[in-house]
Design a protein around this nucleic acid. Structure first.
Lengths: 149, 149
DNA sequence: TGGTTGTGGTTCGTACTGCGAACCAGTACG
DNA sequence: CGTACTGGTTCGCAGTACGAACCACAACCA
């Protein structure tokens, strides 16, 4: 298989697994992403836009829907009365944790046919590609999932 | 970077590049996919469903829209008067070719920082992951792009 | 030959995604 | 102060995707 085909097809595979994990937790992939990003800390709408690569108007809707589901909350920014901080609700935090853990587990299973050394090689090569390009930090590294403990 | 994060983020990267290539040709990613699949030969709706991993009703809409854009055509199946063959129109074929070539070019550029041996290794590892799982054949290998000339 | 069952596709209603343009409110700068 | 900029929302639009219901034909069997 050529490198292009391998990249494209593996990317579809990962996306499908990710989407299914979200679905199993009653989330859309986008809502899952939002929760994962907010696991680290609350963010303003503008920050979320650039992190998720969305237009402002798209994000408003996404946050609206996720808020209606009781998973996130808009809090006023004490420093700027126009601005808003989007934060996880307790329920959202629990669900984010669950979803994140499970999504990682499933994706980690994908390279089951590779031995540890090969996994390492793969992680290294993909990591270099990712770092060579501007990729929104949509999915924290497992090791950094809970920064600050 | 952990393997999970590398997989997820590279998958977002590939998807973004793919989507942008489609957009530059006036296509949505889904329509681009449809065209790419049909480059090989016409298919029935059912076949397309399983190849693209979509529900029947979703595919009807996708084909409708692509047909309205003049890129594909529904032809009656001579063997089954219920069935339909979806085929590229001449314009669709030209556009498919253009899009496919360009998308491949851009994706091929992603691992620019890797030397040939590393690319080979990466293709091999990803290829094994893909083959280990049921991944719809959404993107033909470059070498097989124009089967039968 | 005729009825039942299965299959290929479409239609319909619903929810979500994503964008740009227009807009409002509050901040920052002059 | 007034003007420009910025953070967010609203609105209209097009596309994506699903399941349920449905139709027409095919396939099978009695």
């Amino acid at each position: 298989m050529g490198l292009v085909a391998a990249l494209v097809r593996s990317s579809f595979l990962v996306h499908a697994v990710y989407a299914q994990a979200a679905r199993d937790d009653g989330l859309t992939p986008q809502q899952g992403q939002l929760l994962c990003v907010l696991m680290a800390q609350p963010y303003g709408m503008g920050e979320l836009c650039s992190m998720l690569g969305l237009a402002k108007s798209s994000l408003t809707g996404l946050v609206d829907r996720t808020e209606n589901n009781g998973l996130v909350r808009r809090e006023p920014d004490p420093r700027d009365s126009r601005a808003v901080r989007v934060a996880l609700t307790p329920r959202g935090a629990r669900l984010a944790d669950r979803f994140y853990t499970e999504a990682c587990r499933r994706i980690e299973e994908l390279p089951a046919g590779l031995d540890p050394a090969e996994r390492d090689t793969l992680a290294g090569l993909l990591g270099r590609i990712v770092l060579d390009h501007k990729v929104p930090a949509v999915f924290a590294e497992p090791d950094q999932a809970s920064p600050g403990g």
